[in-house]
Design a protein around this nucleic acid. Structure first.
Lengths: 157, 157
DNA sequence: TAGTCACCCATTGACGCCCATATTTACCCA
DNA sequence: TGGGTAAATATGGGCGTCAATGGGTGACTA
């Protein structure tokens, strides 16, 4: 699956529709459901979204954790319960439900942020503040990254 | 994968296109995505770029920490979120987005610098200053390099 | 029956593709 | 060993296509 990277700003029209960037959309097709799953982020005033494949992973993780970590259980459960399945229209647009818009403080414009396998949808101003803080923390920490070992070309992670 | 070494200066045309040096280009093909991922360098006024394989590693690192580690999350996210997927055109050129050009102070000409598995793209003057400083530091420190043992290869003798 | 939602069509502006040219590099032959 | 020639890379510009956007209309629902 192609990676989701970068940022894209798209407009929300009067009917509440917003185009999902083509490059993101491309990552989600061929997953059974033509659309995305969106749910409010825990940590940020933002919407998190992913395709069906990733949602399956979340669901699977939930089942695994159940008997061990109550916290994880709550967390994953909250994701599934607050998630919305948002189908693409023929032009590749979705309609973000009011509760999600409210949570992220989005109105008029939506900022799509690629996070690898998932994406986030932000209010532009809120994201900028968040980003500055994140970069600040990264710099003060010395900006090193412990990379996972190289994948063996294509093995199952 | 062939190593990226040396420096190349290429022109940016009116449409913002730059040829990626052929030798660099060759290192990035056969990775699924025909193009490079570019993001601003943390430490320098330069653009860093890599192929899909390297980006996948960053994404995998991020997924592992998800919902837990804020630090790793910040850093990996800062890279992924600031990254741009830049596809090659049929002639092997890419278009550097304005934000990246601004970060590196590039205009008119781009200096490609091989860094082994990755590459950097600089403004020529900035790079020269940076390089002098680096050499200066290396000299004053009496820089020595402890070589790792030769890798076991399948080559003759 | 009114309202909402899903699909269809039209516009436009950016971007990718194609072709042409120039400059460099590599190679061959005298 | 030098020049000349051929191939390949770098560069420039035009044009068609597609993604993003806006609006309209019919169908289904409450």
């Amino acid at each position: 699956m192609a990676l989701l990277v970068g940022r894209h700003v798209n407009k929300i029209d009067k009917k509440g529709r917003v185009s999902v960037p083509k490059s993101f959309r491309a990552s989600f097709d061929g997953q059974g459901f033509s659309g995305i799953y969106a749910y409010p982020s825990f940590k940020f005033p933002a919407i998190e979204a992913c395709g069906e494949a990733f949602m399956q992973r979340i669901s699977a993780s939930l089942e695994k954790m159940e008997m061990f970590s109550e916290e994880q259980d709550d967390l994953a459960a909250a994701i599934l319960e607050s998630a919305h399945a948002l189908p693409f229209d023929p032009e590749g647009r979705i309609v973000l439900p009011p509760p999600l818009l409210a949570h992220a403080g989005i109105d008029g414009e939506a900022l799509f942020v690629g996070r690898g396998a998932q994406m986030q949808i932000w209010n532009g101003d809120n994201y900028e503040k968040h980003r500055q803080q994140a970069l600040q923390r990264a710099r003060s920490r010395g900006a090193t990254l412990q990379l996972s070992p190289a994948l063996p070309t294509e093995g199952p992670s």
